[in-house]
Amino acid sequence: MGYLGQIFVMAMTAIFIQNFVLARFLGLCPYLGVSKKLDSALGMGLAVIFVMTLASAFTFLINKYLLIRYDILYLQTITFILTIAALVQFVEMVIQKNAPALYNSLGVFLPLITTNCAVLGVAILNTTAFRPDGVTAYNFLDSVLNGFFSGVGFTVVLLAMAGIRMRLEKSEIPKSMQGMPIALILAGIMALAFYGFMGWKI
């Protein structure tokens, strides 16, 4: 399998087989909280893809050239979360200054992303992940791509959820099932559908 093939496997794994939300249970707060409207779901999704890609790049470099080199891996959690927080703050400032239109659509979601466990999750997973062959550890490009694809996987299910929930508003739901319970059961059915992708050998 060539490198392009491995990237394809990585993309399919991150988006369908080991979906961040439905199989790994990461990023559930925004998944359940920001999926009431389609356009806000899209904004959140794009912001998450952006931050996850950047965070993967930065945390990979920090892990390799600081934490491993000086043998201070026990500081991993604290450095990663501070890096992500600083990154989100920085991205927010840059976008606000240079692209006001983009800021208007993404801005409100950015502060929420620091506490999105999918971002910290992908950063930590990248440090222990292996290529599809099960032997080679991720290099810089692998980590960045994995961050990007995982973000895409998050966005795909977030959009699907938002689409379903918008339709759901028009249907009659028993009072005690309204809101969170029905959203959770919906998520369960989606997870069941995504189970069909598991064990899919590419």
Binding site: I17, Q18, F130, G134, V135, M198, G199
Partner: peptide
């Protein structure tokens, strides 16, 4: 020995 299984290595 290590290899990719169903959902993990």
């Amino acid at each position: 020995a290590a290899d990719l299984g169903y959902s993990s290595t």
